[in-house]
């Protein structure tokens, strides 16, 4: 199946995406502050990837599987910006009785969240299954799977990668939110994943390196290049270099912001760093 290349005829709406980005960042921080919860760094790491997919790249019938389920809040605010989750419901994040837990729900309550995630190493197999189903159902859609560094430690991720490469699953796109940090250390110290590109290439993926996964322009550059290059078949993998806690001075590249909630003072600094203090 050939992927749609209609994007190539439309210029990147940078200003529009940046407005959405600011809106989502503000909502994200307020949700985390209100909940007094962690995983802020992980959500800020992949926020632009999610915005790019939902507001620029994906079609309505396409799937996004957030394998790094601990960044659920980023997914929720993007779905709220897209109108799939109401502002009122968004405010139930972390509250007893919510449909919006710290990790994406397994309830099937939201069409854009077909599977709950949170235990690493499940997302790529789910994505592979969705793509593989097309060979029997005749449906056509793309599946985008966002993995973390930690996801790539899991053996099941590589089982799925083997299958995807072997079966040339052309409608599968893996995006690695490669911020270089994981649960209890830097990835290069815990389990070095380098050379990223060679690993994924050897599993049969066409690999793209996104120099800055927090930049819409950088994402657009690689995704557009990929759309132009329809010569090959098989799955693709975008290795997006990102920054954990992107945009917040004291969070950037700090492992502890996988876990910590913000104090009142830190919240104000975060708003100021992101240019949201006068919003």
């Amino acid at each position: 199946m050939i992927r749609s290349n209609s994007l190539m005829s439309r210029p990147l709406p940078s200003n529009e995406l940046k407005k959405i980005q600011q809106n989502c960042r503000g909502t994200l921080l307020s949700l985390y502050k209100k909940a007094n919860a962690g995983h802020i760094g992980a959500s800020l790491s992949c926020l632009e990837i999610l915005i790019y997919l939902f507001f620029r790249h994906k079609q309505a019938s396409d799937y996004v599987i957030l394998s790094k389920g601990h960044a659920a809040a980023a997914l929720y605010v993007v779905l709220a910006a897209a109108g799939e989750i109401s502002k009122e419901e968004l405010q139930t994040f972390y509250v007893d009785g919510t449909r919006l837990a710290a990790h994406p729900p397994c309830s099937g309550a939201f069409p854009s969240i077909p599977f709950g995630t949170g235990s690493l190493g499940h997302g790529l197999s789910l994505a592979v299954g969705l793509v593989f189903s097309q060979r029997y159902t005749g449906k056509e859609f793309q599946v985008y799977c966002i993995l973390s560094d930690g996801d790539c430690n899991e053996g099941s991720t590589w089982e799925a990668a083997l299958f995807a490469g072997h079966h040339c699953l052309s409608n599968l796109t893996v995006i690695i939110d490669a911020n270089g940090l994981q649960g209890f250390g830097r990835s290069e110290d815990v389990l070095n994943m380098e050379p990223w590109e060679k690993k994924w290439e050897s599993f049969g993926f066409k690999v793209h390196s996104v120099a800055n996964g927090n930049s819409f322009e950088s994402l657009e550059e690689e995704f557009t290049w990929d759309l132009k290059d329809q010569g090959g078949s098989g799955p693709r993998c975008f290795i997006a270099k990102t920054t954990k806690g992107h945009g917040v001075s004291y969070m950037e590249n700090k492992m502890e912001w996988h876990y910590l909630p913000m104090s009142d003072e830190q919240y104000q600094i975060a708003l100021r760093d992101l240019g949201l203090d006068h919003a």
């Binding site: 077909p114 599977f115 190493g121 499940h122 197999s125 789910l126 994505a127 592979v128 299954g129 969705l130 593989f132 189903s133 097309q134 029997y136 159902t137 449906k139 053996g155 099941s156 089982e159 799925a160 083997l162 299958f163």
Partner: peptide, 17 residues
């Protein structure tokens, strides 16, 4: 690859198989 098999199966079922 039993882990991949089970998750894939869940996704195939999601698509009606």
């Amino acid at each position: 690859s039993e882990q991949n098999m089970m998750s894939m199966a869940a996704a195939l079922a999601h698509e009606g198989m």
